[in-house]
Design a protein around this nucleic acid. Structure first.
Lengths: 225, 225
DNA sequence: ACGATACGAATGAACGTTCATTAATATCAC
DNA sequence: GTGATATTAATGAACGTTCATTCGTATCGT
């Protein structure tokens, strides 16, 4: 292990890995209990060390929250950023965006804690700006797709800014009430939300009656806190 | 040891009035800054007394939050509870429910703090059950109307449980991003959300293209935190 | 004078954070 | 290789502050 390359990056590699592990356990706790209900002592216990040691990896508690949110947003954006420029079927792009977002949100242990919203009031101005600008990127892409759909005449003329926030609202809040069940999977949920949104804005009036015959199946997954 | 409800008997009628005033200033603060960012000192200063005095009116800080939320929920429910039994045009009932809810939510100084969601994690089990059961009442009424609309064949066959939470999600989150402006009033917003929802579930395929020509006007009111 | 109302001061707990120190590991001169 | 010397990683105990809440006492309306 006397490789010269390891001298520089070797020590750092270990730290980076440990940082990720701290973030992983912090993420779980923050989503479950909310920022204010989780102390540094909790974070330390979850990771397996003393509170003081966490300060070798993060400057403050807020820094942990920030890094966690940044990673999460990055994941969501990366999966859809190609739609900003890429021309294509807007309907399919909308379907993908919704599905991707729903999956990202529900891939974490349920919260019901509105962590993201609370966080914006906690982060420093600098950090909040970073997160907010990432959220803006997400909404910009969504609006771009909505506008594309209008140009393709597959969506009705609509205020894409408004429709964007409405769709995002439905998706965001899924984590408050949705529990995957037999007959009510995350994929199905995403599909239903997509169809709901599409029904509201689609131009050609294909009856989508059949799409809604899910009574009693999807209902199982709905269990608000 | 604050006694509960000694409104009558020899107790001064002023007590009840002062309690209301404390609640009023507390409500403003809680919605603006969130529960954790508001201390008893802040509540006392806003009302105009010392922190200790608040304990003559409420047993705990949580009790203030609870009473406040209870009043708020009561207001919302009272305005729509007649739809639980009353037969009538489901489309108009849905329009009324959405409008009523939007107005209730946006009648307070903006929060962007997800107070309601956070509160559910703060309240004692007993108090949370009260609030949750009120929320359930709201959702039950909404579902009843959605079912009525299906029976009247004005709504598509749909899972009213799912559609209910989707609609409620859109409405609830308005407080995160909507600012009334010239050309973007609360009433217009409520109407647009109603039309969005109706477009998704309505049975007769009346093109509602014209309904969406609001571009650039409603957009002004959209300003997330 | 008496109870309702308010106050100032104090309490104990919890919080994020800092600090001096130890244990372990890598680096380097010889 | 061996011992001296940095560097890193982690610790346990405390720090100062803030918090909701309690206590004893004074004030006020009647």
């Amino acid at each position: 292990m006397a490789r010269s390359e390891l001298k520089r990056s070797g020590a750092k590699a270990g730290t980076h890995l440990r940082k990720k592990k701290i973030l992983a356990s912090a993420r779980k706790l923050f989503w479950q209990k909310g920022y204010h209900s989780v102390g540094m002592r909790d974070l330390a216990r979850a990771y397996g060390c003393q509170p003081a040691n966490l300060y070798n990896y993060f400057e403050t508690k807020e820094a942990i929250l920030f890094e966690m949110l940044r990673e999460e947003m990055e994941r969501i954006i990366q999966s859809i950023e190609r739609f900003e420029e890429e021309d294509g079927d807007a309907v399919e792009q909308l379907r993908f965006i919704i599905a991707s977002h729903v999956k990202a949100i529900l891939s974490r242990p349920r919260s019901g804690k509105a962590l993201f919203d609370v966080a914006l009031g906690i982060l420093s101005r600098r950090n909040r700006n970073v997160i907010v600008s990432m959220r803006d990127t997400y909404e910009r892409i969504l609006r771009k797709v909505l506008r594309r759909g209008q140009e393709q005449k597959v969506f009705l003329t609509c205020d894409e800014k408004l429709v964007g926030v409405l769709i995002a609202s439905m998706v965001t809040r899924t984590k408050m009430w949705f529990h995957p069940q037999k007959g009510a999977t995350v994929d199905e949920l995403a599909d239903l939300i997509f169809r709901f949104a599409l029904g509201a804005i689609q131009a050609d009036e294909t009856p989508h009656d059949a799409l809604w015959r899910t009574k009693g199946r999807m209902g199982k997954g709905i269990k608000p806190i």
